[in-house]
Design a binder for these strands. Structure first.
Lengths: 350, 350
DNA sequence: TTGAAAGCGTTACCAA
DNA sequence: TTGGTAACGCTTTCAA
């Protein structure tokens, strides 16, 4: 009875009907006539094992359909090869692109994605609890976290990379598109083309990027001596962009340039202007957006916008995260990427 | 030395700088003066424990910030409370909505989502390997699985629910929108309005729903005696819809009704027709889509389409999966949901 | 109701 | 290069 597994001499399997229990490293070891340790080493990256032994074990492992149990691996090694991705609302046109790209890049590096998608009501703290419990190796968050929440990552010693967010008081690694520069750029081009009567459709007050874009636009306008700029707020949705146009027109303002802080709102605004109000774009009204998401490039809209370099940004986010997983003492760093101007034809540019 | 944790009397912690190790049930037990088993019971659903004890333990647990380790729980109990969601391409307009809804519903039931998003090149078998390794409780797949792959779920005893796919030879639970009925419905309404010259923009030949919709449309047309129908194939993208229109026109055909098997292609087709070719929609050409995704309802398109009842479908998928997790002998079942006609204004209907 | 002890399936460490 | 053994942090019997 040298079987290390059944010290107590367990009786025949209890449920013979459900016989196909998953093979463990012990099963492989027994069948290959080696120790369980040998099997483990066989699947470890740079372990010392004789080629012959290795080959024999692999053969048996394949026969038995053995694959290491990720739970057990994670429990003992402290690495799960899982990263949590927290994203605020998937219905936003821009996030699916980011998520797809993140997922692709993480998969490439043999890391799995544990997805947490927040809807408005959902509780971030509850999500974070799950994050701790599941021992993920790190977190990429494109959702709004409070400074206190960011600090929790330090306490739990879980690497974090923020996507298109930052925090001044709590230091955290982050990857952002330079919204301010992009927005200033757009405004300058609009000014150069002779626009003087501006209006803005901003985002919700608690949106980091939304506020950054709004204030960048207003600041640049102020520098140009333009201060009387009607601002209305939307929630980044198509409908809110459409409603925004009506809200602005209702004030009696007659802008010749409309700045929307997201593409989706810009698209809603274009439809409202052209279809509801019969305004010619860009002849009578210039409209600009931000993000460079798919529909912005559809022929019907051909939006003038700033395209975020999603590929490079997600690339950087993943690289930064892995760096911090490998060396937890890597200090906070903020990487800022310039957006690319999509000229489009929804605005007259100078 | 009655500490059950340090039998060997381990020396002081190795890295004092990184002191904040996560509290375990042993830590809580010691601090509360109870056994580790008591702590475990305290966090188990219907365990027998004295209210007083329970309260004391909870108090200590909160103080220490204790939370059960999901890995250890999963390893011993065989339930991870994780479900894998496999989805083919996130950039499709319709999938993010499905994913968001699935994520929401699973979260409600205290289940986490392990996301696998396939891009064209990625290897389904590699994804499945990861699924087995991570011991997920079940899988919802909106990606194309071969019959052999579906059978693997049986062998591994992992519950599976297919979303908008089925398999005739390998039995599997599935939730689908009745594409055939929806498409027939659209065709009938188009026929009733007097359309006689049809064309179809279909999906890739290996798409289940795409083919179902294409053949349903062609069959219904054949019943009406219309057989000479030009068909071109796209890949469900905007660009391919646009290209499809040009391809059809290039054949010399002059359809008065264009059937697109997805909204995104229908939108591309509308832009091509109106913008590239100056064709009036729906006066000169009726265009219909399928899915009822967000942009289909934008004022500029106001697409005539079939809306999939995403909420009810995801609801059903989650319910079916949980049923099979709880009782693995639940037999295969196929639930078919009728789509809802979105009249829109991109087609003249009878 | 409580506690002790046996796993779950690995990796990490040590001696051989 | 190998095998033995101790964790990892929990749930689950089984006795008390």
């Amino acid at each position: 009875m040298s079987n290390p597994k059944n010290k107590a001499g367990t009786p025949p399997i209890k449920s013979p009907s459900r016989s196909s229990r998953r093979a463990t490293s012990y099963d492989v070891a027994r069948a290959a006539g080696v120790s369980q340790s040998a099997v483990s080493r066989c699947f470890a990256p740079g372990a010392s094992i004789a080629p012959a032994t290795r080959e024999r074990i692999i053969k048996v492992a394949v026969e038995l359909g053995y694959q290491p149990n990720a739970l057990a691996q994670g429990l003992i090694s402290g690495r799960t090869n899982m990263v949590a991705v927290i994203i605020s609302n998937l219905t936003n046109l821009y996030y699916p692109e980011v998520l797809a790209e993140l997922s692709r890049q993480l998969t490439t590096r043999d890391i799995r994605v544990l997805l947490f998608s927040l809807n408005a009501e959902s509780d971030v703290d509850a999500v974070l609890d799950q994050v701790w419990r599941h021992s993920v190796d790190g977190v990429i968050s494109a959702a709004r976290l409070s400074d206190a929440q960011i600090r929790l990552f330090g306490e739990h010693d879980v690497p974090l990379v923020l996507y298109n967010r930052t925090s001044k008081s709590a230091p955290a690694a982050s990857v952002c598109c330079d919204s301010a520069a992009g927005e200033r750029d757009l405004v300058e081009r609009l000014l150069a083309a002779g626009h003087r009567r501006f209006a803005v459709i901003a985002g919700p007050a608690d949106s980091y990027v939304g506020e950054e874009r709004r204030s960048a636009a207003l600041n640049r306008l102020e520098e140009a001596g333009i201060t009387d700029v009607p601002v209305t707020r939307g929630d980044f949705s198509y409908d809110s962009g459409r409603a925004g146009v009506h809200a602005i027109m209702a004030t009696g303002a007659l802008p010749d340039a409309l700045i929307c802080v997201s593409d989706l709102m810009a698209i809603g605004a274009m439809d409202a202007a052209r279809i509801d109000l019969g305004i010619a774009i860009p002849e009578t009204l210039s409209i600009v957006g931000f993000d460079g998401s798919g529909p912005a490039r559809w022929a019907n809209y051909d939006l003038t916008s700033i395209r975020q370099p999603v590929r490079r940004m997600t690339d950087a986010a993943v690289a930064m995260l892995i760096e911090r997983i490998e060396d937890r003492d890597t200090s906070a760093e903020r990487r800022l990427f310039a957006g690319e101007l999509l000229s489009g034809h929804s605005a007259r540019l100078g």
